[in-house]
């Protein structure tokens, strides 16, 4: 009896070994692309750790510590240029966001969505038809209380303490897509397939992703680290996008929030979005 059991365990063990041998073989074949990815991302990871130099706030006495980055989108102005896609193109080119032929594989960081969808809770059937059908610019809200961060089982997405940016680690993400379920704004995308063949021109200053991980807007943390504005803000030639520090009472964003009536998406959920809209 004992021998039988030992024999069985041996057979089972050998079978299990056979099963586990396949994955490493697979992994080796994709090692090169993984490596390339890592080397590229090291720069991005470094930048995650250090404080944006432009805003060394305490030393310069210009801004408060911690910083709280926010964006104000002037929809009224943006609406006048319905066909303009400068911000979207700038963002997607900078960040190697793929352009898939099929909508079901879609990955997007910033995009235009019909106002009545983006703000469906304030839609009014007798309201301005033009407004309801006009495009609203959507991106990650970098919530002060981000539901996506709460659900991540590996802390592959987290809120950066010093400036409130909701960050992503594409090397840790296991692709469970729990954050896609948790985000009330539909701001997250999953790489259902390898994105690299679908990037028009690879920007070597920024990492590409591999299939099976989640990605989204990061408020251009890599540009902020160099003291630059986010790519979308930089690209808008009509000045519809304003970026700044909410902790700084003299910042442009605070001024706009003070002088205009602004709305945020789904404020009732308590997520405290950091993207504000002037309608």
């Amino acid at each position: 009896m004992g021998v039988d059991r030992r024999k069985f365990v041996k057979i089972a063990g050998a079978a299990a070994l056979g099963l586990t041998a396949a994955p490493p073989i697979k992994l080796f074949s994709s090692e090169t692309e993984e490596k390339a990815d890592t080397s590229l991302c090291n720069t991005a990871t470094d930048s995650c750790v250090c404080k944006p130099p432009e805003v060394d706030p305490v030393e310069q006495g210009l801004k408060k510590d911690p910083t709280r980055w926010a964006m104000v989108v002037n929809l009224g102005e943006c609406r006048k240029h319905e066909d303009c896609k400068d911000c979207i193109l700038a963002c997607h080119e900078t960040h190697n966001v793929p352009d898939f032929p099929k909508k079901k594989d879609e990955v997007k960081w910033i995009w235009k969505e019909q106002f009545s969808h983006a703000f469906h809770e304030v839609e009014n059937e007798f309201g301005d038809e033009e407004l309801n059908h006009s495009p609203a610019l959507l991106l990650c809200n970098h919530c002060d209380n981000p539901p996506c961060v709460k659900v991540c089982p590996t802390q592959a997405t987290w809120k950066r303490e010093q400036d409130g940016i909701v960050m992503m680690d594409w090397h840790r993400c296991i692709g469970c897509r729990y954050c896609l379920a948790a985000c009330p704004y539909g701001s997250r995308s999953f790489n259902y397939r390898d994105p690299r063949p679908h990037i028009k021109e690879i920007n070597t200053d920024f990492p590409t992703r591999m299939r099976g991980v989640v990605e989204k807007c990061t408020f251009c943390d890599e540009r902020l680290a160099e003291g630059k504005l986010p790519a979308c803000v930089d690209a808008c030639k009509y000045g519809c996008l304003t970026f700044g520090d909410l902790e700084d009472a003299d910042s442009k964003v605070r001024e706009l929030l003070h002088s205009h009536f602004t709305i945020r998406r789904k404020p009732g959920l308590g997520t405290q979005p950091e993207v504000f809209y002037i309608v």
Partner: peptide, 29 residues
């Protein structure tokens, strides 16, 4: 079913390497 649903199945150990008590998925595991 969890394994076949994952985008990066061989990173599953990350759930234990970076335990996240905030996540219900951690507790479910």
């Amino acid at each position: 079913f969890i394994f076949v649903d994952m985008g990066q199945p061989f990173r599953i150990t990350n759930v234990f390497l970076h335990p996240s008590p905030n996540s219900m998925m951690f507790w479910d595991t």
